[in-house]
């Protein structure tokens, strides 16, 4: 079974809301969990601050 830990970060770009899904018997410390949250947020910031150039959209057929 897994537990879900919801978390959010506010930024100038808006709110980043995410969740960690961990085993019920996980051995992560609170600090490690906070690090994972921060990593998720950092990864997201990296994506949205360096978006790719646009290509022609493809509509599904």
């Amino acid at each position: 079974m897994t537990m879900k830990i919801d978390f959010s970060f506010s930024s100038q770009y808006g709110t980043f809301s995410d969740a960690l899904h961990l085993p019920d018997d996980h051995a992560f410390t609170d600090a490690e969990i906070e690090t994972m949250k921060q990593q998720r947020f950092d990864n997201w910031i990296a994506v949205i601050t360096a978006p790719p150039v646009e290509e022609t959209p493809i509509e599904e057929v």
């Binding site: 879900k4 980043f16 995410d18 899904h21 994506v47 790719p52 959209p57 493809i58």
Partner: peptide, 14 residues
């Protein structure tokens, strides 16, 4: 169920 992010030149969300 958590944040969803796509990335890359062809990563539209339709």
């Amino acid at each position: 169920q958590d944040a969803l992010t796509t990335s890359g030149a062809t990563s539209d969300i339709n």
